[in-house]
Design a protein around this nucleic acid. Structure first.
Length: 711
RNA sequence: GCCGGCGUAGCUCAGUUGGUCAGAGCGAGCGGCUCAUAUCCGCUAGGUCCGGGGUUCAAGUCCCUGCGCCGGCACCA
């Protein structure tokens, strides 16, 4: 591969980036840096998704231009990414002219291919979701996610003929087994494709904030389609053919696992339609959860994950995110765990190793180590094995295993020191060569470990390399050439002493709240002063954003799950392409003629057959909502006894309203399980025009009481 | 309900395409060293890799099934 172009999802700018977002950027950055370490020309692009109605509305509330608001947020995002040492090569914003050009071009191509058609759509639209909501999804007329009243919109939309690409997509998946990873995600998409996909709406009418639809400038390109195209526009699609030829197709899209449908169904279909080559691979990563941390700004218990970077340094956070969480799976972040990993990996192992080496080098050899003629010790072999493991893991995006391999070298080195007992060798002049061998080898092992860890902890590793006498610029080092054991006789290295790289911290001290946390020196500062940017600008930018910025509806979306842990995933990413409507977009589905109502009595049954149905009057003695269910009620119905029946009445009837009522139900229906509950019967109801149930009433319950036969 | 995931040492979790995979870290216990950030090194956990079948010369690792959690989609029995 002659180049590597990778991207992350672009982010909505409603809120500041949080840990979940940061996780994605860090992981992608590690991959980008690894590619560079391998000597592959790499282009790493991130950016912001700005054409959201939320942005427009927020700007109006603030009395500023939307673009000014986006500028402000961009500064904030960039500040965060800088503080995490994210090495993106370009930062795209969907409001930029180059993006507008690209979107216009790509959508035009799709139209030219005959894949865009006009259709009417009307329905409830939740601005916070940026998507249409089927009536059935509303709770008390509100969006269940945002507790917000949707708007009734009727508009002419342009639909993308996604359905046409079902087969081509399936073929593509068959021909490219690694197009989507990890495998679980691939299987999900495959099933989805096999089940069939609907055309989806690609435009919004009457919007001011967005990119005009070429075919109908009164509309704008739907924000999700707009957002996806960023990957192409960032490398010059429609504006810089040379750049585009150089980098496209993308080699990897790093995205959250929930937006795989967009990136693995819609996006490739759009590209197919427009005649643009498909990206080579998509990786859907998992979520970072907060455990035991209920975020609440008002209670002052909110934790800004980026505070972690400020507290222990960006590199320890980067290490945590990539080492503790198997890439592709979900993981947890807790302060305790974070500090534990910091102490174990950095303070006790790597940091202490560097420290003990420096100390011995200075004490026994005035800091100057020379490789003796004797052959290298066992560390050489261990390092070679680790490098091999590392490469294998990194090439497969098994970031967590890649770091583990690097730390294996650290462990081996610590063990080696203990086994060699250099302090004993130092007392015996006859064994000077053994001591030289030992110290030089440890230095070499540290050098290689630091080299391998460079993608994960760039700033720290630069310093570690410097301390073990690496004089070349860290950015110039390459795996092939430099991750090999190099200790020829006579080779020299000067070990530099210095303060503890990562001072050990006492467990349990720093309170998650932050304010109470002991102030400690930022290790990154001592590691590399240039690494840590002055965050003053960032703070100013933050301060400029009104506080309610944090607690807008999007905040409430972070539903606390039953364990009280909070998902930091897409639920909390208010913006992003991720939040665009699902692939089986309701808008599209409903654009088609509604399915005909079920024909009544097409096939007739005999009287005997009918008589098999045991219809009874029953009295509801108890009723309650079925947890997690939108429509189901759990009823206890008295007839010939009391039985449990699960009925889909919740939308039309409250449990209280049912207790005491007499209903008609099928008594001899075979049991069924709904939502895990057994239902023994079926309550009869008529269905109104909206599909809502209307219970059948018993005219005179006194005469036809519970248990009475119905015929 | 459908689809998927998970269920591995006290705790938190790793375990690519089946064969040193029965592991790591933390915690606990014992011991060693002193170069080091009271750090490091070694030993100790007798884990039915959720239960039950099956495929295989060989299965945490594949198939079926049961149970328990979790997620998405469902939800008018």
């Amino acid at each position: 591969m002659s180049k590597f172009y990778l991207t992350t999802a672009i982010d909505y700018v409603n809120n500041r980036p949080h840990l979940g977002t940061a996780y994605e950027k860090v992981a992608a950055d590690v991959i980008a840096r690894y590619q560079r370490l391998c000597g592959v020309p790499t282009r790493f692009v991130m950016g912001n998704d700005e054409h959201s109605q939320n942005v427009y509305q927020r700007a109006q509330e603030l009395g500023i231009e939307p673009l000014a608001f986006c500028d402000r947020m961009e500064a904030e995002f960039r500040d965060v990414w800088q503080r995490l040492d994210i090495s993106f090569d370009d930062f795209i914003r969907t409001t930029q002219p180059r993006h507008r050009e690209a979107v216009t071009r790509l959508v035009s191509r799709i139209a030219e291919a005959g894949d865009l058609y006009e259709g009417d759509y009307e329905g409830w639209y939740c601005v916070s979701c940026e998507s249409f909501k089927p009536e059935k999804d509303l709770v008390d007329g509100r969006c269940p996610i945002h507790q917000r009243e949707p708007e009734w919109l009727k508009e002419k939309n342009h639909f993308f003929r996604l359905s046409r690409y079902r087969k081509p997509l399936l073929d593509h998946y068959a021909a490219n087994p690694h197009f989507l990873e990890p495998e679980i995600r691939r299987n999900e998409i495959l099933r989805l494709l096999e089940a069939g996909v609907e055309d989806i709406s690609m435009s919004r009418a009457g919007q001011l904030w967005g990119i005009p639809l070429p075919a109908n400038p009164a509309s704008v390109v739907y924000v999700w389609a707009d957002a996806l195209i960023n990957y192409a526009s960032a490398v010059g699609y429609g504006t810089d053919e040379e750049l585009f030829e150089r980098w496209w197709p993308a080699d990897l899209h790093v995205i959250g696992k929930d937006i795989t449908r967009f990136h693995c169904v819609v996006w490739p279909a759009m590209l197919m339609s427009a005649g643009v080559p498909l990206p080579r691979q998509v990786f859907g990563h998992g979520w970072v959860h907060w455990k035991g941390q209920k975020m609440s700004k008002s209670l002052g218990t909110a934790v800004d994950p980026l505070e972690a970077a400020e507290r222990l340094g960006p590199d320890p956070l980067r290490l945590y995110l990539t080492r503790e969480i198997a890439f592709g799976q979900d993981g947890d972040f807790t302060w305790d765990r974070f500090e534990e990993r910091y102490n174990v990996d950095l303070a006790n192992n790597l940091g202490n190793l560097v420290s003990r080496l420096a100390s011995m080098a200075r004490r026994y050899r005035q800091g100057r180590l020379v490789s003796p003629a004797a052959p290298p010790g066992p560390l050489a072999e261990a390092a070679a094995a680790a490098v091999a493991d590392y490469r294998r893991a990194m090439d497969a995006f098994a970031l967590h295993r890649g770091v583990a391999a690097a730390f294996d070298v650290v462990d081996r080195a610590n063990e080696f020191i203990t086994a060699s007992e250099p302090w004993v060798l130092a007392r015996d002049p006859e064994r000077a060569a053994d001591l030289d061998r030992c110290l030089y080898d440890v230095g070499e092992a540290v050098r290689i470990a630091a080299l391998l860890l460079t993608p994960f902890m760039p700033g720290s590793c630069r310093e570690v390399l410097r301390r073990v006498g690496e004089t070349r610029d860290a950015g110039a080092l390459q795996l092939d050439r430099d991750a090999v054991w190099a200790a020829p006789p006579g080779a020299e290295r000067t070990v530099q002493a210095g303060d503890a790289l990562w001072p050990r911290i006492e467990p349990g001290k720093p309170a998650p709240g932050g304010a109470a946390a002991p102030k400690r020196t930022d290790p990154a500062t001592r590691l590399s002063p240039t690494l840590v940017r002055d965050s003053g600008a960032g703070r100013a930018a933050r301060a400029a954003v009104p506080d309610e910025e944090q607690s807008v509806p999007t905040r409430e979306r972070s539903a606390v799950t039953r364990e009280g842990r909070e998902s930091m995933s897409e639920d909390e990413r208010p913006g992003r392409a991720a939040e665009a409507p699902p692939a089986t977009e309701p808008a599209a589905a409903e654009a088609k003629p509604a399915p005909a109502p079920p024909e009544a009595g097409t096939a007739r049954i005999s009287f005997d057959e009918f008589m098999k149905v045991d219809l009874r009057v029953g009295r509801v003695v108890q009723a309650e909502a079925v947890p997690k269910s939108k429509k189901l009620l759990r009823l206890e119905i008295e007839a010939d006894g009391v039985r449990q029946v699960i009925a889909g009445l919740a939308r039309a009837y409250s449990p209280e309203a049912l207790v005491g009522r007499h209903v008609v139900f099928v008594a001899n229906l075979e049991p069924a399980r709904l939502m895990g509950l057994e239902s023994n019967g079926m309550v009869l109801a008529a269905v109104d025009a909206n599909g809502e149930p209307v219970l059948l009433a018993v005219d005179d319950p006194a005469r036809a009481s519970a248990g009475a036969r119905v015929r």
